[in-house]
């Protein structure tokens, strides 16, 4: 449910940038999604496919979504060890306390997109 709204944000941000650059067709979008960011890649892909079919944005019908996954990383506030937490309650495997500060894994960013100014250009490339 939530991913549809988030994909709306993504499409809007890309439209804003594409309009400035006079880009008419967007054929690829690259995201970085942390494993603790609360978004499901499958649901994002589904939402992307829905937006692709709509005429009111620059995404082409065969546009591609690439999701790079950012692994979670926590640093224990007590012993300083680094580990991969399973949940946001980052339990340190050494201290067995939820003492970890999450330093990676909560990211949800648009990295890049691929676009072209004309349709010919898009078919040709």
């Amino acid at each position: 449910m939530h991913e549809m709204a988030l994909m709306g944000e993504i499409v809007q941000l890309i439209e804003q940038d594409a309009q400035m650059k006079k880009i008419k067709y967007v054929k690829k979008v690259e995201l970085l999604v942390g494993t603790l960011s609360n978004v499901l890649p499958d649901a994002l892909q589904f939402a992307f496919d829905v937006y692709k079919m709509q005429a009111n944005n620059s995404l082409t019908m065969d546009a591609e979504l690439i999701i790079h996954i950012e692994k979670a990383k926590a640093v224990c506030a007590i012993c300083g060890s680094q580990y991969e937490p399973v949940t946001k309650i980052a339990q340190c495997p050494t201290c067995l306390l939820p003492s970890g500060n999450i330093v990676e894994g909560e990211t949800f960013r648009i990295l890049a997109y691929e676009g072209s100014l004309t349709h010919e250009n898009y078919i040709g490339s």
Binding site: L111, E114, G115, S116
Partner: peptide, 14 residues
């Protein structure tokens, strides 16, 4: 052409 954006998805909200 590839355009690097590097923006948080919730930029407009923030």
């Amino acid at each position: 052409m590839k355009i690097t954006l590097e923006v948080d998805v919730l930029t407009n909200n923030n």
